[in-house]
């Protein structure tokens, strides 16, 4: 059964191979036409692509390096010790106060610039009472 099946297959294949349709002959100028229509290889384009592939990542890397070096690597400082934190708060509050006091001083200075006479007059008047 199997042998006859194989024989049938072989017969079919040999029949197909013996009688396979033969393609018509090519147009006489086909070979030349194909060779003429081949595009020239663009080595420049490939070179350009290669250059571009290397230039972009290296430019990014250089920029990153430059930024890192010039700015320095900054990590935020965190007050771990309660004492540091206390100092920080005190300093900041002092700064705020100092700023305020400066304005106060400026005000007082402005007052100080007022003629001293009137002050003395007031004093006098009080004392006369």
């Amino acid at each position: 059964m199997n042998n006859s099946h194989n024989d049938n297959q072989d017969n079919l294949i040999s029949f197909l191979q013996r009688n396979q349709p033969i393609p018509p002959s090519a147009y006489p100028d086909l070979e030349q036409k194909i060779i003429d229509s081949l595009e020239p290889r663009s080595f420049r384009h490939r070179k350009y692509c290669k250059t571009l592939t290397w230039t972009i990542p290296s430019a990014i890397a250089t920029g990153f390096l430059f930024t890192t070096v010039s700015m320095g690597v900054r990590t935020p400082r965190i007050a771990i010790e309660p004492k540091d934190l206390e100092n920080f708060l005190v300093n900041n509050w002092q700064d705020t106060f100092n700023t305020h006091s400066t304005t106060f001083v400026e005000d007082s200075e402005a007052d100080w610039l007022l003629p001293a006479v009137s002050e003395s007059k007031q004093t006098v008047s009080v004392s006369s009472k």
């Binding site: 393609p23 018509p24 086909l30």
Partner: peptide, 14 residues
Amino acid sequence: YQLCGKSLLDDLVQ
């Protein structure tokens, strides 16, 4: 030729 037949055979080869 066996897959597409005779029509446009030269064009397909090209």
